[in-house]
Amino acid sequence: MVYAIETQGLVKSYGALTAVDHLDLTVATGSIYALLGPNGAGKTTAVEILEGIRTLSRGRARVLGEDVANDYARVRSRIGALPQDFEPFDRLSPLETVLYWSRLFGRSLSRPDAVRLLEAVGLQERMGVPALRLSGGEKRKLGMAIALVPEPELLFLDEPTTGLDPSARREVWQLVRGVRKEGRTVLLTTHYLDEAEQLADDVGILHRGRLVAEGRPEELIARNAGRTLIVLGGAGAAGLREVEAEGFPARLDREDVLVPVADPTEMRAALGRLAALRTPFADMYTRRSSLEDVFLQIVGSRMEEGVLQA
């Protein structure tokens, strides 16, 4: 297996704060890897170390086979990066920006090639206006375009969809899938669980600088949350106690009791036993687990817009 990214015991500390804590990460070539975590988890810190624009405190990291601490000059022109909160140059149009960027990489795109790239990200209508006048989604697309200018083997996207409306987010997803189809590797960060689940081949959950879970989304779900859940709506803490006394693994999500069922053949029996509980509940239904359930299970709280809920 060839890895586009490999880290061993990667640490970044700011005084007493350990922003990235012994991170062991492997990203397979040609895959989409999502680093998932709430604000302040250390996503940007980790990504910028891998982009060669922040130093690491301890450990080792290799990008496209080169050591980031010593040999980054050799991979600089083989990576593309969309930083978090990307802002384009106000007074250049998307077309000018793309042409400028291509020359920085010594590629000198022709005008038609630059136009084609802007078409690919969906900016063809807006390629002549000063970037100052682009909407948030259009700016992000321009950021994607310049990240793609070097035809990178490895693309870093730091929160590429944060703050975008659902349709713009879907457009970005399509773009990212297109990049993988060309055989490139993508490392993206996100705090949207559905984004990680739908887009990524592999997901790493980052919490307080540590990688607390890693794997394919469906594996993570099967391993940590059970494929299917029985939900006892409004059963509350009393319900949880009774379910646990019955010998089921269970957890409380607000006022609902969630009972994971790992083996589908046990479903009917489980439903029967739970229906007979003494604690009253409002309703009872089954649903498929999601990454959200995994996150809740592992981190112990929900996450909304990147913020952990109490």
Binding site: E51, R76, P83, L104, G106
Partner: peptide
């Protein structure tokens, strides 16, 4: 402040 330096730092410039 607008992080253009960081952006440029990811290029060969």
């Amino acid at each position: 402040t607008r992080r253009y330096f960081k952006l440029l730092a990811t290029t060969p410039l």
